[in-house]
């Protein structure tokens, strides 16, 4: 385990993305309204590929709302309205001709509370490949499931009980199962909405390790209320406050020399 962490850390520093390369996700002038409430105000943000980007800010600042715009989960809320433009690989995801089902296969999501389906561990991971028709055969599907469980670092723990219910796992394992479920459809972007807030510190550490590994292959956007976590896992950080994106930049810079007074106040614990 220890060696793995070291390797990953070294990889993380190596993989510093060239700011000049094309961003994976581009948000321009994004506004979100919940009925009368203006929840997100003119947000502009570029998210680099194959790196972890953290969204931080006090409760109700709009960071989760922004996250849910990226895979259009806000569509499931009837009163929610989104304006502006979000592009993934230069393709507008709010384009009416784009299919939301396909979009969500490309943009996976992990939720605050682990939400495994009340099915077997195997079925949980196989769910996505099955509905999208990825697997041609049973062996194909087995391969995808086992591979995804491996990538989520869960396989060794559950390999003897793949037919047991996903809800029988511990909280941390459940969350890694949810991550395995998300990566089983091989998405390009993984959104994580405070994935560790319901977990104990040991489980949290495991998830954080996992994120480090995953950023090799995936673009990860994580919402977190823990600044330490943001500092530990992310390449870049964006600070939201009252619906505005206040400041965005390299994580190191954000925490050492914030440009905005509000960022300063937040990271020094004046409010939160």
């Amino acid at each position: 385990m220890n060696s793995l962490v070291q390797v990953n850390q070294s990889e993380a520093t190596d993989a510093t993305p060239d700011v000049g390369t094309k961003p994976k996700v581009i948000a321009r002038d994004v506004n979100v309204y919940y009925g009368e409430k203006h929840a997100l105000k003119a947000v502009n943000l570029d998210v680099p590929a194959r790196a972890v980007t953290a969204l931080i800010g006090p409760s109700g600042c709009g960071k989760s709302t922004f996250l849910r715009c990226i895979n259009r989960m806000n569509d499931t809320i009837p009163i929610c309205r989104v304006t502006g433009k979000i592009e993934i690989d230069e393709r507008d995801i709010y384009d009416p001709t784009l299919d939301v089902v396909q979009l969500r296969a490309r943009v996976g999501m992990v939720f605050q509370k682990p939400n495994p389906f009340p099915k077997s561990i195997y079925e949980n991971v196989a769910y996505g490949p099955k509905i999208h028709g990825f697997a041609k055969s049973k062996t194909d599907l087995d391969e995808i499931v086992i591979g995804s469980l491996r990538k989520a670092g869960l396989f060794e723990e559950v390999k003897d009980r793949l037919t047991e219910s996903g809800t029988s796992l511990s909280g941390g394992q459940q969350q890694r199962l949810c991550i395995a479920r998300a990566i089983a459809v091989n998405p390009e972007v993984i959104l994580m909405d405070e994935p560790c807030s319901a977990l104990d510190p040991i489980a949290t550490a495991k998830i954080e390790e996992l994120m480090d590994e995953l950023q090799e292959n995936f673009t990860i956007i994580i919402v977190t209320h823990s600044m330490q976590q943001a500092a530990r896992v992310s390449e870049r950080t964006a600070f939201f406050h009252l619906g505005y994106l206040v400041e965005e930049g390299r994580t190191e810079d954000m925490f050492t020399k914030p440009k905005d007074q509000r960022t300063q106040d937040y990271i020094t614990g004046r409010f939160g």
Binding site: Q102, R106, H132, E143, I144, G147, S148, E213, E216, N217
Partner: peptide, 22 residues
């Protein structure tokens, strides 16, 4: 990581088969 990667497959959503499935 190497092994895990080999199992990952990408699906071309623009392909006819994928479109028909959707």
């Amino acid at each position: 990581t190497e092994m895990a990667l080999s199992t990952a497959r990408t699906v071309d959503f623009a392909s006819d088969a994928a479109q028909a499935r959707v």
